[in-house]
Amino acid sequence: MEKVLEVKNLRIYYELPQGIVRAVDGVDFEVYKGEILGIAGESGSGKSTLALAVAGLLRPPAKVVSGEVLFMGTNLLSLTEEELRRIRGKRISMIFQDPSTYLNPVYTSGFQVAEVYEAHRGGSWRRYVGDVVKLFRMVKIADPERRVNAYPHQMSGGMKQRVLISMAIAEKPELIIADEPTSALDVTIQAEIVELLNEIRKETGSAIIFITHDLALLLEIADRIMIMYAGKIAEIGRAEEIAKDPLHPYTKALLSSLQYERKKRLQAIPGSIPSLISPPPGCRFHPRCPLAFDICSKKDPQLYRVGGRVVSCFLYGGDHGGSA
């Protein structure tokens, strides 16, 4: 399988007056052509920072401290601003969380989508109105000829998200990063948007990184899932494997919190996500882990291979390895 993206040992820190926030702290993963990689984690797990870094949209005080982001073999972190600009929107595109604030209220939706073509093909945006109508039809916006002239405030949330999606697929990019694309929408609209992304993937062959805190959603749509905890990877595996046989204790806890049964208490994970300014020593999950043993508070687990899967837990590797 062709690798679209390869992230190696990526560390992104926020340098704040209160201290250094280790938002992403040594992350390695790949994305293959045409697949949907789901990234799941709680708020503050570093998943959105990771998304912005891959899209080349990090802004101060966020800073890449180490690592490489190889897109089709080129390290994005070593490119100039102009080289990045040519990739953004054309080869890597982004879909954001809250459609109502990610569109500019003072321009028509059609203009804002046409700007993508203007940026990469040149000429006036007016030349591309026809293409935008086609895109709108593709993302199932009703009455596209009229909607290109509508302003964001004249559209519903779901429709605005479709406009943002049409922007992201305009140039059929190799990689689309969707950061919580459905969190701000109604549940029924959520399902439609997810379905739409799936169709687009099949049609354009784009790989999609789908970021969400909604693990149940990922189990349905993702090919592979990466679980993040406190700036690190907990485990990566195929969606079926994660669902049936989770390896990491955190993944297990997440799954059991999903299995809701009547008259049974909701299985919450005790404790809360640690401070990323002074994370706990050793494995960052150990204070909340029911299976922690002595090594967990002393050493940081590496990513251990278990079959075709990757997991960061001493139960599966290291000197004091357990069952694996």
Partner: peptide, 10 residues
């Protein structure tokens, strides 16, 4: 929306 504009490649 400025972030969107950057991500478009403007």
């Amino acid at each position: 929306h400025v972030l969107t504009a950057i991500s478009k490649g403007l």
